[in-house]
């Protein structure tokens, strides 16, 4: 069977779902961040697959991926800095212990 666009897209979907589960179900904040990175990677795969199969003459797909990588990097940096700062003040990175996001 030839590998078609759907295969990559389904791969992307599976990866995204795994990342989603991890983001919602894990308690360690660093693991949540890792799951988010997985989700971003899934999106990247989908982007490149679209580029390859639907519009290979334009580079737009790859440009998009580059920018996603840039943003992911920036976000990872800031996110981990936040986690370290929280660890310093509360001595824990358990997401269930952070409940200040209410009125």
């Amino acid at each position: 069977m030839a590998i078609g666009l759907e295969h990559f897209l389904i791969l992307s979907a599976i990866l995204f779902s795994i990342g989603l589960y991890g983001a919602l179900a894990k308690r360690n904040a660093v693991v949540i961040l890792m799951s988010i990175e997985i989700m971003l990677n899934a999106v990247n795969i989908a982007m490149v697959a679209f580029w390859h199969y639907s519009a290979p003459m334009l580079m737009t797909g790859q440009i998009f991926v580059i920018f996603i990588m840039v943003v992911a990097a920036a976000e990872a940096a800031v996110g981990l800095a936040l986690i370290i700062a929280i660890y310093r003040s509360r001595d824990t990175v358990d997401a269930e212990k952070f409940n200040l996001m209410k009125w």
Binding site: A25, K26, R27, V93, D94, E96
Partner: peptide, 14 residues
């Protein structure tokens, strides 16, 4: 830098 050796990476309530 945020070592919690006892807990590690457990699953949450949800």
């Amino acid at each position: 830098l945020t070592r919690e050796t006892q807990r590690g990476s457990p699953s949450g309530r949800l």
